[in-house]
Amino acid sequence: MVLTDLVHGGDEKDETPNGVRRRAVLALGAVVLAGAGASGCGLLDHEPAEPPPPDPLQPLADDAVRLAGLHRAAASDFPERAAVLTPIAEAHDAHAKELARVMATAAPSPAASASASAAAGSVEDAVEALRVAEKAAYESAVQACLKAPNHRAALVGSIAAARATHLEALK
């Protein structure tokens, strides 16, 4: 449209009210383009890029990594309970991996949680500490499931339910 006007708009026509309006439109377009160019440069050259907001599932993934480490440490300290604790640690690993997949972030390595320590004297104290951690993580997962968009509800719901079964398994 603008190009057509430039090509076909002769001198005679430019003296008409329509011609004046065309020139005004062209001038306005130039100002808008200049403004857009300037603000684009400003974004690129002077302002740091805004980091994307964290995914609402990130705290759930962080919990999973932390809990995996706690269970692995307890299984190492109390081998007699490893038959229950190791599958729970592996479930948390699987949760962390699946959450990373749906958030499209890098999957955490199991080693990331290796430094966790149960630091509890008796097996009863260690299991009780795990129960407290699982209960808090279950409640976080329930809230996350209630807020989750439909396409994430089943995954987050399964994770909440799994954490509840860990509480049962730790009885």
Binding site: A83, V84, A169
Partner: peptide, 16 residues
Amino acid sequence: RRYAKVDPITVAFPGK
């Protein structure tokens, strides 16, 4: 599963 002595007694993604 605990009563039936199924090992392990938990699954990673219940219902899946």
